[in-house]
Amino acid sequence: MANFTPLSAAIGGALIGLAAVMLMLLAGRVAGISGITAGIFGIGAIDRGWRIAFVAGLILAPVAAMLAGYQVPPPEMPASWLLVIAGGLLVGFGARLGGGCTSGHGVCGVARLSKRSLTATVIFVGTAMITVALMRHVIGG
């Protein structure tokens, strides 16, 4: 477990939890990124303001880190454009069909002790692990 970073994981995770609690306390909303984002595109949506502001805050975090002198390297992405596009489509469509993603189901839903969200989380972690196993150890290996 050479790559295990428990301290930064715990601090970062606590901040994610804090942000979710603050959004509930201040705006009365669950911090589900896919739901927040999809609502920006919604036809006839009337509450775009807070959604756009949340996503803007999300994007401003690494900008602030860069301005403060921290290195934020571009993420390592698959070389195949086909994989990038297929991944994006599946993540977007799947999150909407399933009613949430890692944040909405995995953090906010499980925190509310929702069986629905717990089920979703077990399923998407499961299919993601199977996908990585196939890509790395069957197709790639």
């Binding site: 984002t37 994007i59 993540v91 799947g94 999150a95 399933g98 979703a120 972690v125 299919t127």
Partner: peptide, 29 residues
């Protein structure tokens, strides 16, 4: 829909390693 959507979402997540929050945040790069 919950089961099918979550399964599809997980496949996409596993293909690239990005879910919506980190994907949007990385737009900054």
């Amino acid at each position: 829909p919950l089961v099918a959507g979550s399964a599809l979402f997980g496949i996409g997540w596993g293909l690239v390693g990005l879910c919506p929050g980190p994907a949007l945040e990385n737009l900054a790069t």
